[in-house]
């Protein structure tokens, strides 16, 4: 899985164009479909020549566009965080949702809101990042830390540690949300994640977190690539394993903290996308990261559209749609991984 041959740059370019085409199709579908269908020409009109008097234009520009943008930002961030976590833990089952990182971020945000009252968005994103970072660190230590990064084999401890941390965080979140309010929408947002609770202004405030996380991820990709060869070789190549690990954790923290601040704890994006990205790009981590971002964005967009179309006029929260796809994907992945080692 980590040893695939890198394809030629021409092929990569073609595949990249394909990814972008899927993303574009998903974007158009997200704008056009939903509780009320908007014909494609009207979508185009709404984007190019916005007419405030037309309710359809208002729907596309006002609600669906911001929702689609938020979905894309979350998907890209979570997919990149997943690539980083899988590389750092050497475990193909790592995912910010399953490993409790998103749950830790949610807990931090809920704690801040509960203790200090409503806060500004950057502060909440910061809190989410700190929570995500603590949870990621805890899971990483429980799964064996830096010693496990070099070791091969499928660790059973990582999924269990993730389960423990996310159960702990989510039950605290549930307790706080239920004690504080009776709001089911809020409960759902913080337990499974859903789009449509935040607006464009929130996205703009959270974007610096996501962008800095993404650039940090691209910066340390070379170090993580070297660490994939084993600790000794990595040190020989001039990387500091501990430094790279800390930087990777920081990037995961920023990416999933930002995503949680936008849409609550969404899982499985970071589990599924890295495998597809690796199949496309081979072992090169930086290319995987670059490919994972549009693919994660497209996955979240498509799942969100699916959730809105399937339960018209209401909607299935994005976290649940993804879980329904991601659960069987998890089982499939497992049977492949375990079958290969048999």
């Amino acid at each position: 899985m980590f040893g695939a041959v890198s394809p030629s740059s021409q092929k990569l370019l073609f595949r990249g164009a394909l990814c972008l085409a899927v993303l574009l199709a998903g974007f158009v579908a997200a704008l056009a479909l939903g509780a009320r269908e908007v014909p494609l020409p009207v979508v185009w009109q709404a984007l190019i020549r916005f007419d405030a008097s037309d309710p359809l234009h208002g729907l596309v520009q006002g609600l669906r566009l911001q929702r689609a943008l938020i979905a894309m930002a979350c998907g890209a961030a979570l997919a990149m965080a997943g690539v980083l976590m899988q590389s750092l833990t050497r475990n193909p089952l790592a995912d910010p949702g399953l490993m409790g990182v998103n749950a830790g971020a949610a807990l931090a945000v809920v704690l801040v809101i509960w203790g200090l009252g409503p806060q500004s968005v950057p502060l909440l994103a910061l809190a989410a990042s700190i929570g995500a970072g603590s949870a990621a660190l805890a899971v990483w230590v429980l799964a064996g830390g830096i010693a496990a990064t070099g070791a091969g084999g499928l660790s059973i401890r990582l999924p269990l540690a993730g389960m423990a941390i996310s159960a702990l965080c989510l039950s605290l979140v549930a307790a706080i949300v239920l004690v504080q309010t009776e709001s089911r929408a809020l409960y759902r947002f913080w337990m499974v994640g859903s789009l449509g609770q935040s607006d464009l202004a929130t996205l703009m405030r959270v974007l610096p977190f996501l962008l800095s996380g993404a650039s940090l991820a691209l910066l340390i990709a070379r170090g993580l690539n070297a660490m994939a060869l084993g600790r000794d070789i990595a040190t020989g190549l001039g990387t500091h394993p501990a430094l790279v690990a800390v930087a990777a954790l920081l990037a995961v923290t920023l990416l999933s903290g930002g995503a949680v601040a936008l849409a609550g704890p969404i899982g499985f994006v970071g589990l599924i996308v890295p495998h597809v990205a690796r199949a496309i790009t081979g072992a090169n981590l930086r290319q995987s990261l670059v490919f994972a971002a549009p693919m994660g964005a497209a996955l979240v967009l498509l799942c969100d559209t699916l959730g809105r179309v399937a339960a018209r006029p209401s909607e299935v929260p994005i976290g649940l749609v993804l879980a329904l796809i991601g659960g069987p994907a998890f089982m499939l992945l497992l049977s492949q991984l375990l079958g290969a080692r048999r």
């Binding site: 399953l98 999924p159 659960g327 069987p328 998890f330 089982m331 497992l334």
Partner: peptide
């Protein structure tokens, strides 16, 4: 491992 996956799928 399979059990964890089964639990995730069922609760979703």
């Amino acid at each position: 491992l399979y059990g964890i996956g089964c639990g995730i799928t069922c609760s979703a």
